[in-house]
């Protein structure tokens, strides 16, 4: 194969540098490690952080799955898959169970991940405290000293104003009883999957040049109050394609009268579930 690129686009020195940061991130679960992010042939906001992490750890025998909001066939997912096809010439799959490496934006697959898999999240904003404390120097101290009161104040405010916590995505978690971590804009429905996950979870933020990680079998707790425990989304409906009542459902408007339908956001899960039920 002659592409004009090194395998997986990044040169080997850059990959080694990023791998070292990944190892550091794994050693300090939930801690945001700065790294010397490279320019990628994609704009920020298109998963450049996730791509750099994936490119640093991908091998010739890997089978890659890329999802965007749960779907394998959206523009973002397709262009990332094409990129890796071109620079690695590796196998690509839509099946969660077949993949050894999964890069994702905004979802965790419904199929339980196993110890032989790695999931790489694209991270738009790695700092969960950013909206509460704009100064980087101060947020670093807040993490270092574990001063996380502000985070709970945010939840307090939502309960006071709306009767419950209204945050439904990017719902903050505490990793390994230590660092407050942004789970990326996944629905809070997916938060429990992060807890004690068998697979290694890696997070890459391109613009902010940060990598963080949650090692396998790590405690991940969604923030809450004793008397207002964390809860995930539920639906009265089931998936109108496969009939699932256990998956995260997207609401779609199907006619001009505004009639709504609900379908699985995880397209691979939906397909497999349909086949299984046939």
């Amino acid at each position: 194969m002659k592409t004009g690129f090194n395998f997986a686009y990044l040169d080997e020195a850059t990959k080694r540098m990023i791998r070292r940061k990944i190892l550091k991130a794994i050693c300090i679960p939930g801690y945001q490690c700065p790294f010397g992010g490279r320019e990628m042939p994609l704009a920020y906001g298109w998963g450049t952080g996730g791509i750099q992490v994936t490119a640093s750890i991908i091998g010739k025998q890997d089978i890659l799955k890329v999802i965007d909001q749960g779907a394998d066939d959206t523009t973002n997912a397709v262009s990332i898959k094409n990129f890796f096809k071109r620079v690695c010439n590796i196998m690509i799959t839509d099946r969660t169970a077949e993949a050894s490496l999964i890069q994702t934006r905004h979802r965790i697959p419904e199929t339980t991940l196993n110890k032989d898999q790695i999931i790489v999240y694209q991270v738009p904003q790695p700092e969960p405290l950013r909206k509460l404390e704009p100064k980087e120097k101060e947020t670093r101290k807040l993490h270092a000293y574990k001063e996380y009161a502000l985070m709970h104040v945010k939840l307090y405010e939502e309960i006071s104003q709306f009767g419950s916590v209204i945050k439904t995505w990017a719902y903050p978690v505490e990793t390994n009883n230590r660092y407050i971590t942004d789970p990326t804009p996944i629905p809070k429905f997916d938060n429990p999957k992060m807890n004690n996950m068998e697979a290694l979870q890696l997070f890459g933020a391109g613009r902010e040049k940060r990598i963080y990680a949650i090692p396998p079998y790590t405690k991940v707790k969604s923030l809450d109050f004793d008397d207002h425990p964390f809860e995930i989304q539920t639906w009265d409906e089931c998936c109108s394609i496969c009939g699932s009542t256990k998956s995260y459902l997207d609401e779609i408007i199907i006619n001009n009268e505004g009639k709504k339908n609900f379908i699985c956001s995880d397209t691979d899960f939906c397909k497999s579930n349909l086949e299984k039920n046939k």
């Binding site: 001063e147 009161a149 709970h152 307090y156 309960i159 109050f225 004793d226 008397d227």
Partner: peptide, 10 residues
């Protein structure tokens, strides 16, 4: 202020 002393009951 109370959350600084890890009071987690709303």
């Amino acid at each position: 202020r109370l959350l600084n002393v890890s009071e987690k009951n709303y």
